[in-house]
Design a binder for these strands. Structure first.
Lengths: 227, 227
DNA sequence: TCTGGATGCCGATCTTGACCTCCACCAGCG
DNA sequence: CGCTGGTGGAGGTCAAGATCGGCATCCAGA
C-alpha cells in the first residue's frame, strides 16, 4: 500500500534510477515505515536510506534534514485525519449518526496497517515547537469541527461546545488507540458502538444495579443495544 | 514544593555535603525540573547536575544512568496519579460523585505547578520499552480501577466495562491536558463539570435545537444542571 | 550508432554533542 | 599531623546528522 516491499532493498551496489517525484515518494514511504516502527529519535537517517535502498546523500537531496522529512509525514497524516472527521460530520444531519461516524473515523484512522497514526497521536517529538504546533492544530481543528456542529444544533454556548468536543475527541482518540493495542481482542464495531453509546447517553444510560442485587442472571443491557 | 530554589546553585566551588537520601531527593527534584521543561532527549545530564549545584559524578553515584533517573521520576508520577484516582473512587459510593472526583483527579494531577504530569502523559520516550510499559500500565491501572466499579455497579459485562473505562480515562486525560494549555481561559471547576456532565449524561442530555429554531433567547441547559 | 553533457547516485568523511569516567582537592577525625 | 572519602574539572568514546569528489546511466542530436 505504501510504496514498495517491506524488506530493505538488498540491491548490491547500484539502484535503479528514478525521476525526482517518484524517488521522493518512495523515500517518504520508507521514512514513514521507519519512523512509525521506531519513533523519531530512535530512527537514524541511515536506516531510512537503507530501507529505501539508496544512500544517505540521496535523502538529503530530497529533504533538507531529518525534521523536514518528519514534518512532511506529519502533515500528511494530520490532513488525512481531519479530512475523515470533516467527511463524517458532513455526511449526515442526524447528530447521533454524526458522532458515530466521527468516532468510527478515529478507529479507521488508527486501523491503517501502516500505523502512520502514531505520527499524529503518539509523536515523540512534541518538545519540538513545529511538531507540537502541528499536533495541537490537528487536535484543535478536529475538535472545532465537532464543536461547530454542537453549537449549531444544541443550546449550549460556544465555550461549552468546545469543551464537549474536546472531551469527545479525547474519548475517540484514546478509545481507538487502546482498541488497537488490544490487537483484535475486541471487535472493532463493538468497540466503536460502546464509545458512541458512552458519548451519546453517558454512564447514566446504563442500568443501576444495587450492591445487594448481585444476581448474575439479570438481563445485560449492553447486548440489547439497538441502533 | 519540589525541593529547593528554581535557579541553579551559583555556588562557587564547594557544595555543602548532604546525607545520601537528602542528596538523592534533591537530585530527583532537579532532574524533574529539567526533564519537564525540556523533555527527555533535549536534556543533558550536565544540565541536571548544574541545576542541582553538583557535578556529574555525584549524579552517577546515585543513578546508574539517564534512563534510570527518568524511570524513577516516571514511577513517582504514575503512582501519584493512580493513587489519586483510587482515592477518588473509594471516597464515596455514589457513582456520579465517583466519576466527578475521578475526573477532577486528572485535572488536579495536571494542575501541579511542577508540570510533572508531562512525564506520564506526554513522555517523549515511548519508543523505549521500559517507558512505554510504565505509561501503558499507568493508563491501564487507572482504567481498571474504574472498570471494576462500573462492572460492580451496573449490569454490563467486564469487557464492556473496560471499554467504557477506557473512554472515560481518555476523556478525562485529554480534557485535563487541553484545559491546561488554555492556561486559565476556562475556570477549572467549569471544565471539570462539563466533562462530568458529558461522561454522565452524554451528548443526548443536551437539548436538541431544530435547525430552523435559531432563537438565541432559548434557555441554556448547561447552567441549570443539578447534582 | 556514436558522443557530449547532464542527471542521479554512492563511498567515505567531518563534526557535533552527549553520555559516561580519571586525576587533583579539601574537610573532618584520631 | 596524617588519613579517608566525597567533590570538581577535564577528557574519552561513540553514535548520528550532514556533506564532498567520483562514477555510472540516460538522452539529444548528427
Amino acid at each position: 500500500m505504501t510504496v514498495g516491499p517491506s524488506a530493505p532493498q538488498p540491491r548490491t551496489g547500484k539502484t535503479a534510477r528514478l525521476p525526482r517525484t517518484a524517488r521522493r515518494f518512495q523515500l517518504l514511504g520508507a521514512a514513514r515505515e521507519v519512523f512509525v516502527a521506531q519513533g523519531y529519535h530512535a530512527t537514524a537517517m541511515d536506516e531510512i536510506a537503507e530501507r529505501a535502498g539508496v544512500s544517505k546523500p540521496v535523502l538529503y537531496q530530497h529533504f533538507p534534514g531529518k525534521l523536514d522529512l518528519y514534518l512532511a509525514l506529519l502533515d500528511e497524516q494530520a490532513y488525512s485525519l481531519l479530512s475523515s472527521v470533516r467527511r463524517a460530520l458532513a455526511s449526515t444531519t442526524d447528530n447521533h449518526t454524526r458522532i458515530a461516524r466521527s468516532i468510527a473515523a478515529y478507529f479507521d484512522f488508527v486501523d491503517d496497517p501502516s500505523g502512520a497514526y502514531q505520527l499524529v497521536l503518539e509523536s515523540d517529538l512534541r518538545s519540538e515547537p513545529a511538531v507540537r504546533k502541528r499536533v495541537e492544530n490537528s487536535f484543535t481543528e478536529c475538535a472545532n469541527a465537532i464543536a461547530a456542529v454542537i453549537a449549531a444544533d444544541t443550546g449550549v454556548g460556544p465555550g461549552e461546545a468546545e469543551l464537549l468536543s474536546i472531551g469527545l475527541v479525547g474519548l475517540a482518540e484514546t478509545g481507538a488507540r487502546w482498541w488497537l493495542v488490544t490487537g483484535g481482542t475486541v471487535e472493532k464495531e463493538r468497540a466503536v458502538a460502546t464509545m458512541v453509546e458512552l458519548a451519546w447517553r453517558g454512564l447514566a444510560g446504563y442500568p443501576r444495579r444495587n450492591v445487594d442485587d448481585a444476581d448474575p442472571a439479570s438481563p445485560d443491557h449492553a447486548d440489547e443495544r439497538e441502533d
